[in-house]
Simulated assay, not measured.
Amino acid sequence: MHICFITHEYPKPGFPHGGLGSFVKTIGEALAANGIQVSVVGMNYTSEYEELMESGVRIYRLNRSKLKGLSWWMNSKAVSGKIREIHKHHPIDIVESAESGLAFLSKIKDIQYVIRLHGGHYFFAEAENRGINWWKGFQEKRSFAKADAFIAVSKYVKNHTEKYLSYHNKPLGYINNPINTAVFKPMLNDIIPHKIVFAGTICEKKGVRQLIQAFPLVKEEFPDATLHLYGRDWFFPDGASFVAFLKEKELPRLGPVAESVFFQGVLPLSEVAKKYAEAEVCVFPSHMETLGLVAPEAMAIAKPVVFTNRGPGPEIITDTVTGLLCNPLDPNDIAQKILRIFTDKAAASAMGKNAEKEVQKRFSVSELVAENIDFFKSLSKK
């Protein structure tokens, strides 16, 4: 069996990537280790063509078009052409993309096209209470119409996506995203007292601003507390940096407390795991997630985690048992949950241990790769 993933975010040293890239790398390497041929096709981070093999995964990074106004069409055409070329020499059984990835892709007979719901435009528009961009909405509808099957990474994303987009009575699987427990596992690192760690894109919908607003309340009780933010910057439509916005607008309001807030940039996954291990608490107050890889990753290291009570938060964490859930829009509630971890060491330790067991049971690569293979095989028989 040959699976081809479409993503422009496959991790490349020195370049930022998001959760989608991390997911494809984790599942791709696991599939390859189980004898499945895996290819990844996407546009390069730089203006050149690359082809390489990493951990059994064949990666094709295409030359990104710079043609103003038509780059989207040229890039889609390039991806379609590369898939057709690969299929000619190494027949592909499954092509998988995120929500809008099939919109302008030319389908090939005998290949099954799958959309995995990582959180598309309609999903996040509802979550963030904003309007639908007609162009992005058009792409998603067109892409969904082309798909032969769907995979939902959480019940929440499945239910809220279908408010706006039809699955057209096609096969739909429910499979959590896997966690690389070879990287994210309990470590012997010394914990740095009262170190708070966030990882993810530094943007509004990840709750970073509210976390910063919560930090002074924590600092009042624990003067040695520090807040460390790991992840790539996000940019407003006009190109302005969200990190710069936080530094210019939010940090000055904290006064001297701002000196204990650190923007650490992007790190490789192995380094992120070490930073989780150093933390006394990991906090992810997202306004919305489809599933959220960061919370289960930190849980796999047996860390006490504060996660959002919105969306799939309750699917991931049983409040007070495997972690704590917070109102991501309420800095006071975020602060109180952090303080609870700092003040009740026994409960925090118990939640961390329970969290690790839960991740091993529900998110381990070995379990979930088998579910993916079974689902893909069921499609290839059709």
Rank of each mutant, 00 (worst) to 15 (best):
T290V: 02
F144W: 12
V38S: 06
I192W: 09
E54G: 08
P285G: 13
W73V: 15
E356D: 12
R362F: 02
V41L: 07
L329H: 14
F104I: 00
F263Q: 01
V41F: 04
A103V: 02
A214N: 05
E221Y: 13
G35M: 13
S366I: 03
I301H: 13
G352L: 01
D333P: 05
V365H: 00
S270K: 15
E278T: 10
A298W: 06
D233T: 01
R84G: 08
I151A: 06
F23G: 04
I334Y: 09
L246Y: 12
M43V: 09
T343W: 13
Y122Q: 08
L368V: 04
K185M: 12
S364I: 00
K158T: 01
K303E: 10
P252L: 07
K205A: 03
L291M: 14
V283N: 12
P178G: 03
R116M: 12
L368R: 04
D224C: 06
V281P: 02
D319V: 04
A149T: 03
D224K: 11
I151D: 01
T161P: 05
E280S: 12
S100A: 15
V183N: 14
F242L: 03
K219H: 11
G120F: 08
V153K: 05
T26N: 06
G173W: 04
G120Q: 08
K274F: 01
I27T: 02
S100I: 09
A182K: 15
V41P: 03
S166Q: 06
E204P: 01
G231D: 00
L229I: 13
K353G: 13
Q213K: 13
K353N: 14
L67A: 15
T161S: 10
Q139S: 14
N44T: 03
R116W: 11
R340H: 15
L31Y: 00
V243W: 00
L379D: 04
K361I: 00
V153H: 04
I115F: 08
T322V: 03
A78F: 02
M299K: 13
R130N: 10
R310H: 06
A127G: 13
I212F: 12
E128I: 10
L117C: 05
E204W: 14
Y164E: 12
W134H: 15
I373F: 04
P91T: 05
E99C: 02
F150N: 05
I36H: 11
I83W: 08
M53V: 15
V183L: 15
K219M: 09
K12V: 14
L117M: 11
G19R: 01
P314T: 02
K247T: 05
G120P: 09
E140R: 12
E297S: 07
I83H: 02
A225L: 07
F198M: 07
R253K: 15
F198D: 10
T46K: 10
E297C: 11
G231C: 01
H90Q: 14
